[in-house]
Amino acid sequence: MRNISDIIEQYLKGSLQDSKEGTIEIQRNDLAEQFSCVPSQINYVIQTRFTLEKGYLVESKRGGGGYIRIQRIELPQHTELHHHLHHSIGSHIDQTAAEGLIYQLEESGFLSKREACLMRGAISRECLNLKLPYRDELRSRVMKAMLLSLLGK
């Protein structure tokens, strides 16, 4: 059985997918009531599963009539992806940012679930058993090499 966080995440992703603009606005209290949970549960889902690294822009307005706006950030088209990856990864990348980029590529269909799983294993700190900053430098080179070969560039 899935937990409430997974259910809320899937609901929000479905709403985003159905949105023509790729943006949704929600009222935290209304959503909490809909799922019979506390409003902080909605905050938790948004803060952990709709991050910039995972390809989402979140904006909120507090107070009466306040809202939370979630927007899916689309990856560039295949021709621009090489430049985007080079810029995103740079010469160093930490594990959190690397995993976020892999997640975003998987969600966008650029990577299969299996490819994403293999990449996460290859760039993990357990696999790259070096001290910082060498680990982040090596992770950057490994990420670029894998992505460029997978994307055919």
Score class of each variant (00 low, 15 high):
Glu74Lys: 14
Glu53Gln: 10
Arg2Val: 06
Asn3Ile: 12
Lys144Tyr: 08
His84Glu: 14
Gly90Gln: 05
Thr23Glu: 10
Glu59Gly: 01
Cys37Thr: 13
Leu12Pro: 03
Thr96Lys: 15
Tyr134Arg: 15
Gly90Tyr: 11
Gly90Met: 03
Tyr67Cys: 02
Gln34Asn: 10
Lys113Ala: 14
Arg62Gln: 11
Tyr103Arg: 10
Val45Trp: 03
Asn129Ile: 12
Ala145Lys: 07
Ser149Phe: 02
Glu74Ala: 15
Gln104Trp: 15
His82Ser: 06
Gly121Gln: 10
Tyr134Ala: 01
Gln34Met: 13
Gly65Asn: 12
Lys54Asn: 12
Ala98Ser: 14
Arg72Val: 10
Pro133Arg: 10
Glu9Met: 08
Ser124Trp: 08
Gln27Ser: 04
Lys153Asn: 05
Leu101Asn: 04
Ile93Thr: 09
Ile24Cys: 03
Ile93Leu: 06
Arg62Glu: 06
Ser19Ala: 15
Gly22Ala: 07
Lys54Trp: 08
Glu9Tyr: 12
Ile46Pro: 02
Tyr134Leu: 11
Tyr67Ser: 02
Ser140Phe: 12
Ile93Tyr: 14
Leu148Asp: 04
Glu59Phe: 14
Ala32Asp: 01
Gly121Val: 08
Ile70Trp: 01
Glu25Met: 12
Cys127Asp: 02
His87Tyr: 03
Gln17Arg: 13
Asn43Arg: 13
Lys153Asp: 06
Gly152Ala: 14
Arg120Pro: 04
Glu106Tyr: 03
Ala97Leu: 07
Asn129Phe: 13
Ile46Phe: 07
Val142Phe: 09
Phe110Met: 08
Lys144Phe: 04
Thr23Asn: 04
Ser124Leu: 13
Ile42Glu: 01
Gln34Lys: 15
Val58Phe: 11
Ile4Pro: 00
Ala116Ile: 09
Gly66Ile: 05
Gly22Asp: 07
Asn29Met: 02
Ser140Tyr: 04
Tyr67Asp: 01
Lys131Phe: 10
Gln34Val: 02
Thr23Leu: 08
Tyr67Gly: 00
Tyr67Trp: 15
Leu150Met: 14
Val38Phe: 06
Leu128Asp: 04
Ala116Pro: 08
Gly65Ile: 00
Leu132Trp: 10
Leu130Val: 01
Glu9Ser: 08
Gly109Glu: 03
Gln104Phe: 11
Ile42Asn: 05
Ala122Thr: 08
Leu138Val: 13
Gly65Phe: 07
Lys54Glu: 12
Ala98Pro: 11
Gly63Leu: 11
